[in-house]
Amino acid sequence: MNIFPESISQIGSEMDKLFWIITAVVGIATVITLFLFIYPIVTRKRNKTKEEMYMVGNSHGKRKWIYIGMILLFLGDMYILLKEHPIWESVEQTLPDPDFKIAIIGKQWMWNIIYPGPDGKLYTDDDIMAYNELHVPVNKVVHMDIKALDVVHSVFLPQARFKQDALPGRTITRWIKLNKTGEYDISCAEICGTGHSIMRGTMYVEDFNTWKKTMANIYKK
């Protein structure tokens, strides 16, 4: 039984790795805490003197183990932040030059996908609109302009580990670069009304030549 669905992007694999890093930090903390939980329960019937038991913890010296625990957790936290920050920077804070641009527009309850027309530019008269079908080339940087027409939606590509809310009235540009061909899901992750559960699209990741043929077919229509 696998933990994650298959990953189809470099970023996605790094995110999976980050999950395991955090889980490892948390796991160490869990083992220590679990020991502190179980040991006093196991030894609860041993005889102890009142002096031993009257632990108030009213000075820094007596609380040193707590401080050590907090410092250890702080180090773990910092390690997580160090590991995650470069990924965040490359996913959200940089925008590599696009090989291809599309717009995804959420609408109750479907995804409108706008491809640039033969001129290769988005938002011109020859743009082509498709419903719920997203064709992207493999190993290319794809820019997505994410918008919504009516209510808040959220573009969720589980296999690409990608998610971005689509908001009415603003355009958010994000990028993906996928490294595996195949058919994948587009989900809407933000509740958008009665049809929220039928709002699914399909993402076709195709190698460049197949994708060109597909696009040519789309243009013909």
Binding site: T33, L36, F37, Y39, P40, I41, T43, R44, K45, K48, E52, M53, M55, G57, W65, I66, G69, M70, L73, F74, D77, I80, L81
Partner: peptide
């Protein structure tokens, strides 16, 4: 992520209360 630290202090205090208890 930082907010975990005061809570760690709190939970550890509680575990310190359990330590060597009857």
């Amino acid at each position: 992520i930082i907010i975990s630290i005061p809570f760690a202090g709190m939970v550890l205090s509680y575990l310190g209360t359990l330590w060597k208890g009857n």
